[in-house]
Design a protein around this nucleic acid. Sequence first.
DNA 1: ACACCTTTGAAGTCT
DNA 2: AGACTTCAAAGGTGT
Length: 539
Amino acid sequence: MPQLNGGGGDDLGANDELISFKDEGEQEEKISENVSAERDLADVKSSLVNESENNSSSSDSEQTERRPQPRPDPESYEKHREYFAEALRRQQDGGFFKSPHYPGYPFLMIPDLTSPYLSNGSLSPSTRTYLQMKWPLLDVPGPATLKDSRSPTPGHLHPHHVHPLTPLITYSNEHFSPTTPPPHLSPEILDPKTGIPRTPHPSELSPYYPLSPGAVGQIPHPLGWLVPQQGQPMYSIPAGGFRHPYPALAMNPSMSSLVSSRFSPHMQEPDSESSRHTAHPKSPVALKREEEKKPHIKKPLNAFMLYMKEMRAKVVAECTLKESAAINQILGRKWHSLSREEQAKYYELARKERQLHSQLYPGWSARDNYGKRKKRKRENKQPDFTPEESLMSQSKKLCLPYLPTEKTCDSPASSHGSMLDSPATPSAALASPAAPAPTHSEQAQPLSLTTRPEGRAHPHFPLPSKAAGSASGPTHPSISLHIGSSSSQTTPLLSRPIPFTSLPPSMLSPPPSLHQVALQSRQALLQSQPLSLVTKSAD
DNA sequence: ACACCTTTGAAGTCT
DNA sequence: AGACTTCAAAGGTGT
C-alpha cells in the first residue's frame, strides 16, 4: 500500500512540519490503509495529463458536453451534510477523507475533534487542533468511496459550501445555494478513465486557490473555513480563473513534471494567456492588461482579521448596525477585551496562516499587492492639524476602547465587566502552545497602544517598538508619543498618559451600551466629529 | 463603479 | 532603527 508521502506525496515533507500532526504515526498508518494502490495514483496522473492536454485544446463547453451536467439534485444539500458528517466520523475513526475544496493545497487540515477548543463549530488555533490531510489526487480514496456514487464523495462536494463543521478549506461560497446544488455533486464527474472523482473543471467549479500564477483574480483564503458562519472567500477569484483543474499539483514535485511549466508555485506569467500570444510582441497595453490579470494573492490575515471574520457575524447579529466601520470599532474593542489566551489563539492562527501562505506562494510578497488598491486619500491627512485638533483626533480613537464593554453585544471574554476591570490574563498565554511563535514579528504579541488598557499589558510581552508604529498608524501618527511613559501606571482608566486634558466628563460617566456606542460610532462616521463617540449622550 | 470608513497586525518602504 | 505606508475583511455610505 502506498504511503501518501511515498506515492507521490513525498514532497510534502516540508509541509508536514507546517502543522503539527496528531498522533502522527498512527495517522500515517491510517493513511496507508486508506489510500489505494499506486495504480490509482498512476491513473490519476494519467488522467491529469489528459485533463491538462484536453484543457489546452478543448473548450469548457466541450468538456461540459463530454460530461453532461446533472440536473440539480434536491438532495444534494443533504448529501453535503451527510458527507461532512461522514468526514468527521472518519476523522474520529482516524480515517481520512479528501475534499475538492482545496485543490490548491497539498494537504488538508481538518479540525481535531479531540481538541478541547473545538466547540460550537469554532476551531481552535491550537497547534494540535488540526489534522493534516494529504490533498487531492494523491489521496485516493478507497474503492468503496470511489465507486459508491450514491454517497457524496469528496470529489462531489461543492467548494463553496461551508458547513459550520466543515474541515474543508473554502475559497468561495458565492455561488452556493442549497436549492441549487452544485453540479459536481453528481457522481457523473468522475474521471472517465479511473472512475475516480476528479476535481471538476474550472468551468464546473468556481476557481480555487491558484497556486498557478496564471490564475486570474483573487485567491480564496487558505483558512477561510475557519470562519464558518459565512465562508466568504478570503481570496476570491473572479470568473475565468484557472484554466487548469489541478493547480494544486504545482506544489507537488512529483507532479511537477506534468504541470510545472504551467503551475509553478512562483509568481510567473500564466501560460494560458501569455504563451498563446508569444508569437506576437505585446503592446504595453496588452502587457498592462495581463499584468492586471495576474492573480491577486491576498495577504494572509492577521490575528485581528481572523478574529473579525469570525466575530463579525455575531456582532452584526447582536446589533442593528450594519456599517462595517462601526462594527469594526466594536470588534476592535472586543479584541482588546479578549484574554491573552484568547488572543493567542488568533495569533497562532495567523502565524499558521502566514506559514501556509508562504508555503503556497513562496515567491509572493506583500509588496506584490502594493498599489493594487487605489491610493487612499490619507496623504492629505491632518497635514495642518493644530495640536488641539490633533489631540481631538487622537481622543476619538483613544476614547472608544475605554468605554466599558457593552452588555447587549458582549463577548464571553468581556462579559465579566468592563474592559477597565478585566485584568490581563496571567502569563498562561506564554506557556500556551497557541502563543505566537517567537518569530521576529511575533516575539511579542503586539499591543495596541491606542486601545489596550494598561492593565492588560503583560510584562512578558514587552511592547515592541513596531507596535507603536503600527498602532499609531498613518492616520494617527502621534498617538505613540503618549504611550511610552505609561508602563509604570497601574490604574486602568487613568493608567496611560492620555492627553485628555479636555476629556469630557461623559468619559467617566456610566458607559453606554455597545449598541449605543455603535450608534455613536455611526454618528461619528456620518458627522466626522472626532469626539462624538464619547461626548454624545448615551441617550 | 469605486473610494471611504474603521479596526489591528504584518510587512513593506522610507528616512 | 524607527517612522511611516499599505493591505488584509467587511459592507453601508457617498461621490
